[in-house]
Every structure is written in structure tokens, then in C-alpha cells.
Design a protein around this nucleic acid. Structure first.
Length: 422
DNA sequence: TCTGGGGTCCTAGGACCC
DNA sequence: TCTGGGGTCCTAGGACCC
């Protein structure tokens, strides 16, 4: 059996750990730039505030129901997530960290020990709540897709008290008959429309479709998914995270930017960030892509979107080297007189960092640049982000994303720690 | 005025090889 | 006039996830 442990309204719940006064109130967490709603408390869901809603459409509701707005605090959420995963790992060794707030637990080897799996799940749930103050729900089923289904019911039906097991075929079929297709893991809006058009409404309907039809319209992934709904495991637990195949840094600007110098400073900062992530997973990149984009929502303004890639002469993880190419690309795709919303960089085509293919005809990498980058990483790790910085990053914060309602990084910065006074 | 950020996989079609 | 068969690699586009 598989457990899917999933935090309830994770970002909101993470904020509430340090803000018990937010308990029982409608709370929403906003995306970067305080743009849209990316997490909602149950109270906010009850007010019918949709996921992804742009904040500027909210003011009436906010006023009327005193909805609490919070800027996303990913430093905090990342740390709470790490703590959650450590706790889960104490119970079960075979876990797959699937996202910031979800993990699959492989119970196969525990089934003899714990004859009552729901009881074990309750134990995990209450421990997480006691040690971390985070509410979670647990779905139990024979495979990952069905454990998602079980978790969905566990969250929504109070009678389950946050834990639901779907084990025998009857239970599974009943649940699926009550489960809308669009909620199935792997069925997005497009597929849902297609299925609806063909009279397929519930997950149970989907299990009754012909394999050939499914594969034709939904690729091999669709077939795998339906097979899991039918009870056959088709997706295994990935205990060790796979190294990323591409790494992207491309946040949007707080305000529109039109001059090349500011774009260069922003891009430099993004490349620095991106290269840090690259070195953290000990890769070197062969391909670097720069994106430049105006605001697509401002239809009345002239639009420009362009991106260009450059194949590096040798795989690199050295910030100075990556910077040089990135700025070169930016200069070649930049056009004046547009209001830009975003400049971004993507690194891809990875090889292991220590694997440098020697070739008579290509330029040899300068090892010193890599060493310098690693050293800067070490110092910044110790003394704080960007303590050592590249001059080209500049000091302008004109382009930086805004976050008006940011909470403190209670658990990762000494000077932001929670203080209790009389 | 204000609309996120960071990823994955699959498929089709073209270029190219022998 | 006749114009194969089988393979690989790359890219763009489209779907999905949280």
C-alpha cells in the first residue's frame, strides 16, 4: 500500500504556525509581486475565492469579509517542508518527496508490522501536528494515483478525520464513481474537456474506456494513469530525487523595465541564482537560453517576446562564464522602446560537473572560474545570500518583485525569530 | 494600477546517416 | 521511367504537475 501525505492548504497552514491569530479567518497567500491567489484557507475557499484569482479583483471581498492577504514566503515554506519530510522519514524510510507539501510513503514492507494501516496513518498525522503544528491528510491505496483519490476524500469529508483507506475493489469503485475526472492526477483542463465531450464524467467512467482510444487521445501517460485507476501500480516510488534536466530563473519585474542596463542587472542576478542551483546539484550546463518578454496582459501595448540559446564551448557551472554568454544573448535580442515584464535564463543540457570531456578542438574550461564560484557559494551560504556579489548585479531594486504582506522568516534567520514579550 | 514560478514527459516531423 | 528501409537525434509544441 501507498500513503499519500499532503498538508492541508500548506502555505496558509505554514503561516498559521507562527500566527495563531489567523486561525478561523479567511486567509490567502499571494504569488510573487502579490499578483494572484496561490493558496487559500478553508474560510477563503468558502467565500468562493478562486485559485489563481488576480488580487486586483478581490478588494470588495477583502473589505467585506476581512480577508487576510499574505505575500508568499518561500523561505519559510521551504523550511517547514523540510521539517515535515524529516518527520515522515522517521516513520517510513521509503518516501518520495513529491512536492513542497506532499510525499508518497511506500508501506509495502511495513504491512506485516502494522496490520492497521489507517491507525498508523493517524499516528503520523497527529505527530506532525504535535511536532510541527501542521495539519495533514493521508490517503491510503494500492498505488499512487489511487492514494491521491483517497487523500482527496480524506480532506473533504470530515467523517474520515483526515485519513482514508481504499483497499478492496468495491471501495475503490464506489470512490471512483463519486470522483470527477478533472480531479484525477494527470487530467488537466484540456483532457477534461475532451472526456466530457465523450460523456466521460467520473473516474469510474474513465476506467471503462478502451485502451486504444485512451492512448490515441491521451498518449501513453494517459494509459498508465487509467491503469492505476483500475488498481494496477504503474508508477513507482522514487526514493532519490532525480537531478534536474533544466533549471530556470525568470521572475517577473515589480514594475515595467525598458532600459538595457536594468535588464542586464536583473539578468545578472538571475544567472547568479540559476548557477547556484546548478552547482548545488553538481551539474554543468551545455546550453544557455535567455528569455525576454513584455507584459502579455497589456494588450494595448506593443508586445515583444524573444528567446535565444547559445551552445557553450564546453559544459560550464562557473557564474562568470555563464554571465558572459547570457549578457551577450540579451544584447542581441534586446529591442529598445518596449516595456518589459520579464527577463529570464534557463540552463540545460547537463553533464556531471566533474565530467569534462576533453577534446583537442574545443576550448578547455578554466578551472579557476569554477573554484571561485564554489568559494562564493560557500561564503554566501555562511554569511547570507549575495554577501559576495557580482558588480554587474548593481544595487537598483527597481525591478525587484514586490511583496507588501511578507511575514518573517521565523525559522531560518536569527534576526527574524519570533520573540515573546510580556 | 494590479494577472506566479519552476518543472516534467510525450509526440510529430525534419535532418541526417548508412 | 524507376526513387528503400531502418535508424538516431533534435526541436517545437502541447499536455500535465504543484
Amino acid at each position: 500500500m501507498i500513503f499519500l501525505v499532503d498538508a492541508n492548504n500548506f502555505y496558509v497552514s505554514a503561516e498559521r504556525i507562527f500566527r495563531p491569530d489567523l486561525e478561523g479567518k479567511p486567509v490567502v497567500v499571494l504569488s510573487s509581486n502579490d499578483g494572484n491567489v496561490i493558496a487559500r484557507s478553508n474560510e477563503a475557499k468558502n467565500l468562493k475565492i478562486p485559485m489563481g484569482e488576480p488580487v486586483f479583483k478581490l478588494p470588495e471581498l477583502v473589505k467585506k469579509h476581512n480577508v487576510q492577504l499574505l505575500s508568499a514566503n518561500f523561505t519559510l515554506y521551504g523550511d517547514i517542508s523540510a521539517r515535515l519530510m524529516r518527520i515522515l522519514n522517521q516513520f517510513v524510510e521509503e518516501i518520495e518527496i513529491y512536492s513542497i507539501d506532499e510525499a508518497f510513503l511506500d508501506l509495502t514492507t511495513y504491512e506485516q508490522v502494522y496490520s492497521d494501516l489507517p491507525m498508523f496513518a493517524h499516528q503520523i498525522k497527529s505527530t506532525v501536528n504535535q511536532w510541527l503544528g501542521l495539519p495533514v491528510s493521508v490517503g491510503i491505496a494500492p498505488n499512487k494515483t489511487l492514494s491521491k483519490v483517497a487523500n482527496w476524500f480524506a480532506k473533504r469529508r470530515p467523517e474520515h478525520n483526515g485519513v482514508l483507506q481504499l483497499s478492496n475493489p468495491n471501495e475503490i469503485q464506489n470512490a471512483l464513481s463519486d470522483f470527477p475526472c478533472g480531479e484525477v492526477w494527470g487530467i488537466g483542463h484540456q483532457y477534461n474537456q475532451l472526456l466530457k465531450k465523450n460523456g466521460i464524467i467520473t473516474a469510474y467512467d474513465l476506467t471503462q474506456c478502451h485502451d486504444v482510444w485512451i492512448q490515441k487521445h491521451m498518449t501513453i501517460d494517459g494509459l498508465r494513469l487509467v491503469d492505476e485507476l483500475r488498481g494496477n501500480p504503474r508508477r513507482s516510488i522514487q526514493r532519490y530525487p532525480q537531478p534536474k534536466k533544466s533549471i530556470l530563473t525568470s521572475p517577473t519585474f515589480g514594475k515595467p523595465v525598458d532600459d538595457l542596463k536594468t535588464l542586464q542587472e536583473a539578468l545578472t542576478t538571475h544567472v547568479v541564482r540559476c548557477a547556484e542551483k546548478l552547482r548545488r546539484q553538481q551539474s554543468a550546463a551545455r546550453l544557455l537560453t535567455v528569455y525576454l518578454q513584455t507584459n502579455p496582459f497589456r494588450k494595448q501595448e506593443p508586445q515583444y517576446f524573444n528567446h535565444q540559446s547559445v551552445v557553450l564551448p564546453h559544459p560550464s557551472s562557473a557564474t562568470p562564464e555563464l554571465l558572459q554568454y547570457a549578457i551577450g544573448v540579451l544584447n542581441s535580442i534586446y529591442k529598445p522602446a518596449y516595456h518589459y515584464k520579464r527577463v529570464g535564463v534557463m540552463l540545460s543540457g547537463f553533464v556531471p560537473e566533474d565530467f569534462q570531456q576533453s577534446n583537442l578542438f574545443t576550448e578547455v574550461p578554466d578551472e579557476r572560474l569554477r573554484v571561485v564560484s564554489k568559494t562564493i557559494d560557500m561564503l554566501n551560504e555562511k554569511y547570507g545570500r549575495d554577501k559576495i556579489r557580482f558588480a554587474a548585479q548593481g544595487y537598483s531594486d527597481h525591478w525587484k518583485p514586490r511583496s507588501k504582506f511578507l511575514s518573517r522568516r521565523y525559522t531560518t534567520r536569527w534576526n527574524e525569530i519570533l520573540r515573546i514579550t510580556k
